[in-house]
């Protein structure tokens, strides 16, 4: 599992050089600069705004850049009730995000439809797009959203980025050096 380990930095022998695995470095970079796409649909959006504000400060995790353009975002935080009327619009925005992308389903409504077992509410955004982290709560406290973000960071740190994205190159290198 690629992980970052503490390495001797600025040591007398190697100087300002760190040896690490490519996956570990790439995952570290990606997880510490997750730019959210705030799909704030209902009340959970208020808690999302509170998390982005100064008291709970999502900027500590590198995620203060909440651009409303999906082209510049890494993680879509679906915060709020997804009605059937809005569902396909959420899917369209998700499809416009470039890879690598992740999804956090924030709150009960985005995870499973919440208290709205009705004719008009999509019973969970995972019926349309793949979700990585579900956060329960109605609404979840900002600390819960931050815990969910940290869980997503843990998940990202276990990804095999190089092998997933460049399988032919990985195979070629294996054959060359095996």
């Amino acid at each position: 599992m690629p992980e970052t380990r503490s390495t001797a930095y600025d040591s007398k022998i190697e100087g300002n050089v760190i040896f690490t695995r490519f996956d570990a470095a790439l995952n570290w970079v990606r997880k510490n600069s997750l730019w959210p796409m705030p799909m704030g649909l209902a009340c959970c959006a208020i808690e999302l705004m509170a998390t982005a504000a100064s008291r709970f400060d999502i900027a500590r995790f590198g995620a203060e850049v909440m651009r409303f353009s999906p082209r510049q975002c890494d993680v879509m935080i679906v915060a709020g009730t997804v009605t059937y009327k809005m569902a396909l619009a959420v899917k369209r925005i998700y499809e416009q995000m470039p890879e690598p992308k992740w999804v956090i389903a924030m709150g009960a409504c985005a995870s499973t439809g919440g208290m709205y077992r009705s004719y008009a509410t999509l019973q969970g955004i995972d019926q349309l797009i793949p979700v990585d982290v579900y956060i329960s709560g109605c609404p979840p406290r900002p600390e819960a959203l931050l815990a969910g973000l940290m869980k997503l960071q843990e998940k990202i740190s276990t990804e095999c980025a190089f092998r997933d994205q460049k399988p032919e190159l990985a195979e070629k290198l294996e054959d060359a050096f095996a």
């Binding site: 059937y84 569902a87 439809g113 077992r117 009705s118 004719y119 008009a120």
Partner: peptide, 22 residues
């Protein structure tokens, strides 16, 4: 006469509805 859990409908590219599990 419309059931509480809704009725399935489909309008491609606009919206769809499903029956809610109760």
């Amino acid at each position: 006469d419309f059931p509480l859990e809704g009725l399935p409908s489909e309008m491609p590219d606009v919206a769809f509805t499903k029956i809610t599990p109760m």
